[in-house]
């Protein structure tokens, strides 16, 4: 089987047409294939996120991660960019939605595209993935332990964000939620509230909570990594995208 792929930094048009840096990985097959927008976590547009982008390409998807901190810190090291963005209050929701819309349009514009685009995010990106699925026309959303979908950030938080739950009725696509049972942000009761609301609204979703796993259990380079939960979680992700992003 021909399995060559290409990974490179590109420029896309994000919110309000701004030119934003993004990392693209795609199979070199003619397609048609689905696309995945990867939303990076708070620590930024970093090496581990780029690895994830390449992983999607290796599984046959065109994947792209916009650098959400490009405006505050163009060309900066990911950790410096993350510190700058944190001190500035994080990424405004409106801008995030615009950047994800630009990334999705870029994927749909590839000649290999089958027109379908999913989104995935971890941690703060999990909330942003859910938010994107409420505000944009997407085909699948994966929320990996996104906090503040239901609850408001605690006082003193630098994040000037609002809960997303009131937008849930606008959800445009099926949602896969992967959570750690030991996580506090989101805690199991927040996940249960989200589950109840999506059930009430008749939305298509699938949630899995892993015992013995806390926040960031997918992060292979952190002590929070939980191999069993992460391996099974990746299986759920590829099954889900296999169903929702197929031609």
């Amino acid at each position: 089987m021909y399995d060559a792929m290409m990974a490179e930094t590109v420029k896309i048009n994000g919110h309000q047409g701004d030119e934003v840096e993004a990392y693209l990985a795609r199979p070199l097959t003619p397609g048609p294939s689905g696309g995945v927008v990867v939303i990076h976590h708070m620590p930024g547009y970093d090496q581990s996120t780029k690895e994830m982008v390449r992983k999607f390409a290796a599984h046959g998807y065109a994947a792209i991660c916009p650098n959400l901190y490009w405006r505050e810190a163009p060309g900066a090291a990911p950790d410096d960019a993350a510190a700058t963005a944190r001190a500035a209050g994080g990424v405004p929701d409106e801008r995030l939605i615009g950047d994800v819309a630009g990334a999705a349009a870029y994927l749909r514009g590839l000649t290999s595209s089958n027109g379908k685009v999913g989104v995935i995010g971890h941690c703060s990106g999990g909330r942003q993935a859910f938010l994107s699925a409420c505000e944009l026309d997407l085909d699948a959303a994966v929320d990996c332990y996104g906090a503040f979908v239901v609850n408001t950030p605690p006082e003193g938080s630098p994040l000037k964000v609002r809960p997303v739950l009131p937008l849930a009725e606008k959800l445009s696509c099926p949602v896969l939620g992967l959570f750690g049972a030991d996580d506090q942000f989101p805690a199991p009761d927040e996940v249960a509230t989200l589950e109840a609301e999506l059930t009430k609204l008749g939305k298509e979703f699938e949630f899995h909570s892993y015992e013995g796993a806390g926040h960031a259990f997918f992060a292979v380079d952190r002590p929070s990594y939980r191999p069993a939960a992460a391996v099974e979680g990746w299986q759920r992700i590829f099954e889900f995208y296999g169903r929702t992003l197929a031609a």
Binding site: A87, A147, L159, F185
Partner: peptide
Amino acid sequence: MCTYLTQSG
């Protein structure tokens, strides 16, 4: 967990 709590001055 991410505490998100930040003190700045």
